[in-house]
Every structure is written in C-alpha cells, then in structure tokens.
Simulated scan of single mutants.
Amino acid sequence: MPIDVAKALAAEPATVELCWGHKDVQLYHLGLGAGAPATDPGELRYTLESKLQVLPSFATVAGGGMAIAGGISTSGIDVDLAAVLHGAQAIELHRPIPVSGAATQTSKIAAVYDKGKAAVIVLRSAAADADGPLWTCDTQIFVRGEGGFGGERGPASRLDLPEREPDRVLERPIREDQALLYRLSGDWNPLHADPEFAKLAGFDKPILHGLCSYGMTLKAVVDTALDGDVTRVRGYRTRFAGIVFPGETLRIRAWQLDPGRIQVSVTAVERDDAPVLADTLIEHT
C-alpha cells in the first residue's frame, strides 16, 4: 500500500534549520497585496523595515520551505503527487515572530486518517529559536484514492456559520500578477504560474496559492478587527474549500464569536461566492 500508516507514524522527526530577514518578511507581505496605498501608515507596518511587524502566517513560508513536500517525503509514504492537495492549515503562535531570526523546525507525521476515498496526512511542525518555542503548524495533506484502509476517520472540524449577519464584510482584490509575486516566497509549483501546466491540471488558467488566500484573509481581519496588531493573534486555522484566480476578489465575512475568537468565511465574488476558505477560526487576545 502506498501509505504504510504504522511506518509513517513511527518515522523519526525531520529537522531543518530556518533563517529569515526583513526582506523575506517584506516580500511575503507584498505577495499578499500589502502596500496599497503605499504611504498608508497601516500598510507601512508590513512594508517598511523601520516599522515592520510579521504577520503570523509568515510561519508557513519561513525559510522558504514547503510543508507539503516534507509530509510526502516521509518514510512510509509513497503517493502520486498528482493526487495530493493541501487540505487544511493551522498555526499556533507561542510568541510574536521576529523580523529577523533563525530557528530549528522539527516535523513529524502526527496522524493519518481514512476518509474513505482519500487519506489525510497530518504533518506537525514545531519551530523554536534560542529563546524557546515560536510556532506549531499542522498541515493537512489530502491524498485522493488512498483511503479505505480501515483507519480512523479523524476528528470533526467543520464549523457551522453563525445564524446572523456577519460583523464585517470585507473585499480584497487579487492582482493579476499576485501569484507570480507570492511564489517568490518559496512555492514554485507551476500550477500557479504556467498556463499550460494549469490546463493539464484541469484549470483554464493558473490559480492562486491557497496559502496566499490564507495570508490575505488574516491580514484583512487583523487590520480591521485587531487594530492592525499582529501580536494579538494566538491561533489561525482554515480548510481550503475551493480555488480562486488572480484578478478575482475575495469576499471575507467575519463574525466575532466571543472576546477571543473570530470565525471567517471566504468566497470568490466573481463566481457567485464560490467557496475559497471554510471552517476558518482566528484566536486572539
């Protein structure tokens, strides 16, 4: 069987050294659409090195690594890359990410779930620097055609939307060149840049990275609900529910559930609010 669950769970953790500087952070923020208007004080917090703060979702690209690649190169896992999708992403922040830093990241398969027609691999990555833990990420890798092995289905993570109007409705345009800029932070998958490759994958044109939509959404909520203060974010999770194309617009609906949690739904405006991100929750102080 392509996935040997016992072997994957027993595999030794993989360790990698990460390092980043202010240019990496600024490039990541620009890839999310930061910097418009260029002189806006709120945007300068993402673009100007003398005022710079780090959006917590930077953890997904720190060091230029790709969590999905690490998850499918583990002992016990041998799957067709064409069957692999990024299913969900969660980040827990232990303290604010520094503008420049070096950290050791340790990754291990935390679980393999049987969804019937597919398997879900959960890759847990924890990063720490000389001062202690920085973040923990759970990356869920959805592998079509690899289910049915009799394993656990895994915990339910679906969130019903509140039965009331959202507290905020935000729209964020995606530039035509945004995927080309975002991919410079480390995700070189040609699906997001090469029209011919995108057509082979079944799309009319290249699609935006799911993690770009993920970062754009967090920035929009931080800027409007958390006073632009990235240090208030304690956790952020989502499920990638659909695609979005460069040139389209994200519609972000946000509900304040209680003083420390904001639920979010993200759709594509131009395609009749087709789902983009679902089961999305931001935990904050």
Rank of each mutant, 00 (worst) to 15 (best):
A6Q: 11
T15A: 15
E17R: 12
L18V: 04
C19G: 12
D24H: 15
L27K: 08
Y28W: 13
G33N: 01
D40S: 15
E43R: 07
Y46F: 15
Y46E: 01
L52E: 10
V54I: 03
V54P: 00
L55C: 08
P56K: 05
P56T: 02
A59Q: 01
T60M: 00
G64M: 06
G65I: 13
G65F: 13
A67N: 06
I77K: 02
D78P: 10
D80Y: 05
D80S: 14
L81T: 06
H86G: 02
Q89N: 09
Q89Y: 06
R95Q: 05
A103V: 03
A103I: 04
T104E: 11
T106I: 14
D114A: 10
A118F: 13
A119N: 09
V122E: 12
L123P: 02
S125W: 03
G132E: 05
W135N: 01
W135I: 00
T136V: 12
D138K: 08
D138E: 15
D138F: 04
D138Y: 07
T139F: 03
T139R: 07
Q140K: 13
V143M: 05
V143K: 02
E146L: 15
F149P: 04
G154Q: 10
S157K: 14
D160I: 10
D160P: 13
D160R: 13
P162S: 04
E165Y: 12
P166I: 03
V169A: 07
L170N: 04
P173H: 04
D177W: 08
A179M: 03
L181I: 13
R183H: 14
S185C: 12
S185F: 04
D187H: 12
W188Q: 10
L191G: 08
E196Y: 09
E196C: 04
K199R: 12
G202R: 06
F203A: 00
D204P: 08
D204Y: 07
K205N: 12
C212T: 03
Y214A: 01
M216E: 00
T217H: 06
L218Y: 01
G228V: 05
V233D: 01
Y236I: 00
F245N: 07
P246H: 14
T249Y: 05
I252H: 00
R253H: 11
A254S: 14
Q256G: 04
D258W: 09
D258Q: 10
G260D: 14
I262N: 01
I262Q: 01
Q263P: 10
V264D: 06
S265F: 07
T267C: 05
A268D: 06
A268S: 15
R271G: 01
A274F: 05
P275I: 09
P275F: 06
T280S: 11
E283I: 05
E283W: 08
T285L: 03
